[in-house]
């Protein structure tokens, strides 16, 4: 087991691209954990990952990898899986191996070919001939073959069939099972996170709304649905991500609010899924959601002490 330092610690990252602003992006990932980084398209997931990897420069904030500031030595311990591989499309997988062998310090050729075999990838195929799922598996094979301690993945399961997604999920669980590794991956497919993630960091419009354990997040909210006309203004003020269609509504409500809030007879509530939470909060905007719908902000997150969604201003 490694020492109790975080595999990844991000503090106060900020970046501006034209009209898009990211600010105060902070979260922490410990060894032995899988953190899902979730948000809709354009929320800032890829930009955050690029800042962690040094591909893009943050305008504020700090990044620590394995308890140390970003450096070339530290970055070498990271396995990277992006939405498309960086390798030349003209390279055969044997040439990918040859390239990787000379650039990774702890490269294991036998492990790479074993993973290719396991994933059903033909080593004589060219990178450009691989399907999306295959190219992700190729990157995972490479990432697992140089003794990486931290896997950082950007939308690895997007556009992949459910069986392949399941395989990847199992692989990630195996990767962290010894407690010496960690996985950080961004996705907008919440069902994958429900199965594999231990921690969740939720980003919306460049701001972190939640970072903490998945279990804690799922206990915080309930989904409410029923006749829209029967909902009082007082109740509406407690709801997040109000969605109305054909006279019926669905929305999210904090579990604590249900303790003192009476629901109309036509309304039902059930535990919210991760998808419900992400969708509802993605719908909610500063203009339409009143402050009382959110819980008060908790201290900065770690995997052991989860934080809450940040309140609307």
């Amino acid at each position: 087991m490694v020492e109790a330092t975080a595999a990844l610690k991000v503090q106060g990252l900020a970046k501006t691209y034209g009209q898009f602003h990211m600010q105060d992006v902070s979260f922490e990932l410990n060894f032995g954990r899988i953190m899902g980084f979730v948000g809709r398209n354009g929320a800032g997931k890829t930009t955050t990952i690029k800042m962690i990897l040094g591909i893009v420069f943050p305008q504020a904030g700090s990044i620590e990898l394995f308890g140390k500031p970003y450096s070339a030595d530290v970055v070498g311990k990271i396995g990277v899986v992006m939405d498309s591989p960086y390798y030349s499309g003209e390279w055969k997988l044997t040439e990918v191996e040859s390239a990787c062998k000379h650039v990774y310090d702890n490269w294991d050729s036998a492990a790479f070919y074993a993973h290719l075999n396991e994933f059903g990838l033909d080593k004589n195929k060219k990178v450009k001939e691989l399907s999306r799922g295959m190219s992700v598996k190729l990157q995972i094979a490479a990432a697992l073959s140089h003794d990486a301690q931290l896997l950082i993945m950007d939308e690895p399961t997007s556009g992949i069939d459910p069986l392949a997604r399941d395989d990847i999920g199992e692989m990630l669980e195996d990767f962290v099972s010894d407690g010496n590794h960690a996985v950080f991956y961004s996705t907008h497919i919440t069902t994958d996170l429900e199965k594999t993630a231990d921690d969740i960091t939720f980003i919306r419009d460049g701001e972190i709304l939640y970072t903490g354990t998945k279990a804690e997040l799922l206990t915080k909210y309930m989904t409410v649905e029923g006749e829209a006309a029967q909902v009082s203004e007082q109740l509406k003020a407690q709801l997040v991500g109000w969605h109305e269609h054909a006279g019926r509504f669905d929305a999210l409500i904090a579990r604590e609010a249900l303790d003192y809030q009476q629901l109309p007879d036509s309304c039902t509530s059930h535990p919210a899924s991760l998808d419900d939470i992400v969708v509802s909060f993605s719908r909610a905007t500063r203009k339409t959601t009143a402050p009382t719908a959110f819980l008060a902000a908790a201290p900065a997150a770690s995997s052991a002490t989860p934080s809450t969604l940040s309140p609307e201003k």
């Binding site: 990897l53 970055v75 960086y86 030349s88 650039v103």
Partner: peptide
Amino acid sequence: TNMNAWYVTL
């Protein structure tokens, strides 16, 4: 192929 980014990650 954005290999420039790969160099950074290496």
